[in-house]
Design a binder for these strands. Sequence first.
RNA 1: CGGGGCGUAGCGCAGUCCGGCUAGCGCGCCUGGUUCGGGACCAGGAGGUCGGUGGUUCAAAUCCACUCGCCCCGACCA
Length: 476
Amino acid sequence: MTKGITKRNEDYAQWYLDVIAAADLAEHSAVKGCMVIKPNGYAIWEMIQAQLDRMFKATGHVNAYFPLFIPESYLQKEAEHVEGFAPECAVVTHAGGKRLEEPMVIRPTSETIIWSTYKNWIQSYRDLPILINQWANVVRWEMRTRLFLRTTEFLWQEGHTAHATAQEAEEETLKILGVYRDFAEQYMAAPVYVGIKTDKEKFAGAVRTYCIEAMMQDRKSLQCGTSHNLGQNFARAFDVTFQDESGKLQHVYATSWGVSTRLIGALVMSHSDDNGLVLPPRLAPLKVVLIPIWKEESEMEKTKQKAAELTANWHDQISFRIDDRDQYRPGYKFNEWEKRGVPIRIEMGPRDVAADQVVVVRRDTGEKIPMPQQDLLPRIQKLLEQMQNDLYQRALEYRNAATYRADDYKEFQSAIENPGGFFWLHWCGNPDCENRFQETSKATIRIIPMDGEKEQGPCIVCGKPSQQRVLVGKSY
RNA sequence: CGGGGCGUAGCGCAGUCCGGCUAGCGCGCCUGGUUCGGGACCAGGAGGUCGGUGGUUCAAAUCCACUCGCCCCGACCA
């Protein structure tokens, strides 16, 4: 029945691209590695933004905006940071028809420009904390790109906070990690594992990087959000000090954290099926589409009128659309809205009008549910919540079923290839061991759990004692 | 950067090996009509510097050289 969408089990990568095309979310642009986010895709981003923005503000953050351009010398002030980002920076050398005295980097992230600014804002402990977020675009010249998951330019939010104590900075880092986790689970309906990155995987310039990791339908892991405790690294690099209560000068403690348009890719790969996009209701820009059905002109008027009556008081309460376009037949419309991931479709034809009912169809299950027209909106609202929960549960079960414990390296190596998934392994903490199994399995340590159960065991590579298991998987 | 693929109508492609009429097909689009509870059908129509430059030739989408770009698979990364 489906045209134009490759089956998931035939070619997952192609399926992903096909779903994006079918749902009209984005397309490749004339510029390599860049994408045009089309209205359907951008609307999802706006839903993500709106909710996260509420959550950031509820936790005391405010928005600001820092420049796109960063003097090249700024980037070089933090050693690890420059090493990590320099290779993927786009640099502007000419402007206004002249060669610039100092080249400008197009921000790959804004720590450096922000800390050079915070320096002027902070003198006393009374100036702290600073809790700022910005919604922005950034550019990272990646070798290989994939729509939404990794593009040369992408949209994100980056929070940058400044604190008087190490403890406060750590609390902030964890607070945001919690926000991300809640957002992923409650809004994206994506269960996530939460933990710390290994030194090898952490952000360039951070003391510690925390993140949330979600499993996609191909059993690969996608990092969906990161929260960094930057310690005093950037304060030292930019000489940002404050006078504490006792009058002593101290370097400021910093955090930074972000999520990006990658989340749209995560949504696609978490829930969608061979018929196209499936969106969790809470992030669906359009939640309901009502399709009046008719044969003759008289019926057309009647059903259209009925549809208008039925939804007369919906406008402030739910995002919906009546698709009464006359140039398409119902089957075409069913398919079109399905591809686009609208959670609920309401069919209403002459038979329904006569029976004072409608047929409600769930996008996630395809289930058709006849419903009385009376009190339709609350029933729909309830169903949307049900769907939101069901999507989460389904994703959770899928992930749990594909998460294993492994103690034998050979077994792990074969299992990561087939069937694939997440593996809890004992790891001694030695980067050499990390590199070893990374090279041989192409899988990486996704997280070290923070509050996971302690369990003694031998490192799966070298056999030395390990205090707990770490999560390993192939990733995007 | 390595490997592979592709640039011909808005999209997907055929034609290229072996040069030759006015460059085709499907989808989509426009007009009219019949249709309408799971991707309708009929008729008519619009739409092309064949990625670019140079060369070979009476003649180039097709052969040669150079070049630009994009996509996919790997190494780097949110």
